[in-house]
């Protein structure tokens, strides 16, 4: 008996299991229908989108995808996005690791206040920071570079990474640290050789979250870039306003932005649930 939550006679159990499948089926349909519609649009020509209404493409075409993958002003958007997202993930996790260790192991002056202050940055609306960021990065000559967006996204990703990693590190018994020190490990060597492998799933989850929130963000990345580092999200919004009605290409670009997320999710699927609980389960 695997499902002990169902405390009913066998005859009723069957009905309930089907009920569960029905609920999940309905919910997943609700989730996937809009995405399916986007894919559907991306396989049609503009004439077909505006001319006829059909549940699936009558003359499937990959022309929209071809437009994107052959035009540098489109596909460089993806490259730019990936560059600053990866930079941000690396920076966030690297600085968050020692800090999370400190929070999970030591009590120090002002630790609770500092921790809450970090979290307040996760709460800060990007809209508040858009203009000052623009001025700050312009004045230090970083405007329209990948590193500027990566640093700006640290605003909300570093606190999140610290929060997640602290949750995972709390689960590692302190005796391990002490034993390692008695065995003569120095702190850096202990941290890299023993401690990091122990929380590798936590690191994976933290990296996943940094990737996710940096990948989906638009307001800051759009404000801080113009040409050289323009992310795909901004490319899309500008095309909407410029040509107005190129729905097919817009839909194809949208579909392509879902792909990296879907790939990443596949790799961390077993840790997703725990990760969303920030390691606190």
């Amino acid at each position: 008996m695997t499902d002990l939550a169902v405390n009913a006679p066998a005859s009723r159990t069957r009905g309930r299991v089907n009920g569960k499948a029905l609920v999940m089926g309905l919910y997943l349909t609700f989730l996937l229908l809009p995405i399916y519609w986007l894919v559907n649009m991306s396989l049609k020509t503009n004439a077909e989108i505006l001319g006829t209404f059909s549940l699936w493409p009558q003359n499937p075409t990959l022309a929209n995808y071809r437009t994107i993958l052959t035009d540098p002003s489109w596909y460089m958007g993806y490259v730019n996005s990936l560059i600053f997202v990866v930079m941000n993930t690396v920076i966030s996790v690297l600085v968050a690791l020692p800090a999370a260790y400190a929070f999970s192991r030591y009590r120090f002056l002002g630790d609770k206040h500092f921790f809450f202050w970090l979290l307040t940055n996760r709460m800060a609306p990007p809209a508040v920071f858009a203009l000052p960021f623009f001025q700050l990065y312009s004045s230090v000559g970083l405007f329209d570079t990948h590193i500027a967006v990566a640093l700006a996204h640290c605003l909300f990703n570093v606190p999140l990474a610290v929060w997640i990693l602290e949750g995972f590190m709390r689960g590692v018994p302190k005796e391990i640290d002490e034993t390692a020190y008695i065995d003569g490990y120095s702190f850096p060597r202990f941290f890299v050789r023993i401690f990091m492998p122990l929380i590798s799933s936590g690191i994976g989850v933290a990296a996943f979250f940094c990737f996710m929130f940096s990948w989906v963000e638009l307001l800051l990345s759009r404000t801080l870039t113009s040409v050289e580092a323009k992310p795909i999200a901004a490319t899309m919004t500008r095309t909407v306003s410029a040509s107005g009605l190129d729905w097919g290409v817009l839909a194809a670009a949208g579909v392509l932005t879902i792909v990296p997320g879907a790939l990443v999710i596949y790799f961390v699927r077993n840790y997703i649930a725990k990760g969303f609980a920030l390691g606190r389960v």
Partner: peptide
């Protein structure tokens, strides 16, 4: 499948 919407850029 449930995580999919979470990873779609917000403007998309």
């Amino acid at each position: 499948l449930m995580s999919l919407p979470l990873l779609i850029p917000w403007n998309v």
